[in-house]
Design a protein around this nucleic acid. Structure first.
Lengths: 193, 193, 193, 193
DNA sequence: TATGAATGAGAGTTCATTCAT
DNA sequence: TATGAATGAACTCTCATTCAT
């Protein structure tokens, strides 16, 4: 299939990670992809035009990793804990990429695409909550889709605070994770907590 | 005094808002500030170096507005509601600025400065929680500083979702706000809810 | 082929001669070469980086002219005289270029390249001395390579003194030339002088 | 006396030595001199205008050192050796300064001032040769002033080759020095060699 | 005399984009 | 499709110079 396009996206991820979007030149990307300068323009119109492709790849990867971490037969409480673990873990691993996806989208008019990109993520979380609500383990009063969004926002902002915006030790991060978990449990009205 | 620096920051905010960071030239900023091109470099090394100063101004402004909205004799529950109101309101008003602050910081090596910039905000919220905890209106088990951070993250991420990443109507936003408020109340174990 | 590079070097020689290095702009050079501004940087990193190339061209040209002036069947004494004639003549003709080569190299970190550039010149003189030494017309005690260097230094410094550093009439220069020739003859222990 | 001017000259020597003329800014010089930016212009019109003052100082210093090395009661042969020693030594010590004086003068229209600056040096050497000639220890046929110039050129070019244009070890330099001495002895027709 | 913040012209340099091969 | 040398508009940034203090 479109081998060259794949090469460009991969190279762009690498170079963006390393130098940031602002300082990345098309020439850096093509060098990393091992293709000619002009070839880039056969696939993308600018370095920013690569961002949506990157974002798609990344969210997909994130969701995969979250799902991989959950066992189907776990309780909701266990799943919640695992989700938090996974989001923190992925944020730690791919923090620059998320920062640059955000920055890349924000720098252009693509910011609103965030919603679309996140849609499957929200949907997945919404489904998880629905099951828990139906099973009666979380409070009835919550609206699953809205809470899904709010919950993901909660966890991600905490992970961002830990890995993106500050330099704190692993111990502090563990405490933060626990705090978030407890915060979420209460928020969801998780029974037996 | 530092009149020139002030002028640059103000002009930068305006121009960034209007054209975005990427397309902003130093010459645009100095034109707006009414100073010479070279003068800019006496105060900042690049357009990105202005971002922390802008962020500082904005956080300060945000904190001011939040405080203005709260009455000292309100209950904690009322205060919490007002805080959420205020954050949503400010995010709505200054959404492009927040987007560009984030993008501007993310694009460079200044990202870690977020922590310092947010410090007074966290401190203020922490104080609010301490009073509530001491008064026994929220659960004893929470750690005030960590919860302050988590709570702010929760509210802001919800506001960002509403105003930055999507185009939803005011009604949907009101619902989201309510959801966040309820979510937070449960999370904090607010008595009498 | 390296047509563009050639054009740059030639244009640089012309412009440097006309305006001096200090006042020469890259834009002057590219204008003279009939190429685009950016093309210059594909071949050289700065105007000073052109100097070694210029120096090479000049030394080559100088060596050519010296060789052209000598007849193979001349005696060594005649050849020595011709070499002095040639060096004085070339120095007179290209004095600004030599001044600017020296100045251009001295102003940068390229100064040590002189040795490499002069190598063929030294080698040629060394060969001339070897033949004379083998023929027994100059003293046995001299070391040919070192003497080649010293001799070239002697002649060039005298030529520089005449044309570069002072404004003397041709008659004085003729006397200087004679003095150098006699000085060199004695120095080399030339038989039959 | 003119303290500030002195400070500027000294600072200029230091900075020129360190960064070269081209890369030296007026601001570097005034920083080193501990004076204000504007003050520089009260004494010099540009950085190049400082060169003649520097050159004067340096030649004076050089001549002093040569004279200090010679004993009045030495033979001419001994003195010649000492002169060569001294020139090599000074060139080694002040090589960058001489390179930059040359370069600084060459870059402007001050190059012809070299003659004036060197005049006392030539005069001193001329006097030395006169005494030797009168004493009958060197050949009668040489013209003392012209030979003084040629001899100084010879020694300096050899020293320059050793220290400025190449990176050779001390042993090679010693051999070069010996070669120059022998070369000069023969050239001058020094008796008893 | 001395200062140094402010100036702004203009140089260097970059790099997205093109197009003949 | 693919190339990559060449382009040149347009940017950043420097730094000599000024002038109110």
């Amino acid at each position: 299939m479109d081998n060259k396009k794949e090469l460009i996206i991969q190279s762009a991820i690498n170079v963006f990670r390393e130098k940031g979007i602002e300082k990345t030149k098309i020439s850096d990307i093509v060098k990393g992809a091992g293709i000619a300068q002009g070839t880039f323009y056969l696939y993308f119109s600018s370095k920013f035009a690569v961002m949506p492709s990157i974002a798609e790849v990344m969210v997909e990867r994130m969701l995969d990793e979250i799902r991989d971490n959950l066992k189907d037969d776990s309780t909701f409480a266990e799943k919640l804990e695992k989700v938090i673990e996974a989001v923190f873990q992925i944020t730690s691993e791919y923090r620059e990429i998320f920062a640059l996806i955000y920055s890349g989208l924000a720098a252009t008019e693509y910011l609103k695409e965030w919603e679309t990109i996140y849609a499957p993520y929200y949907a997945w979380m919404s489904e998880l909550l629905t099951q828990a609500k139906d099973a009666g383990v979380i409070r009835k009063s919550l609206h699953v889709m809205r809470t899904a969004e709010v919950l993901i926002g909660l966890i991600e902002s905490a992970a961002d605070q830990s890995y993106l915006y500050s330099q704190v030790d692993t111990n502090t991060i563990e405490l933060k994770k626990k705090e978030v978990l407890e915060f979420a449990r209460y928020a969801l009205g998780l029974k037996g907590t």
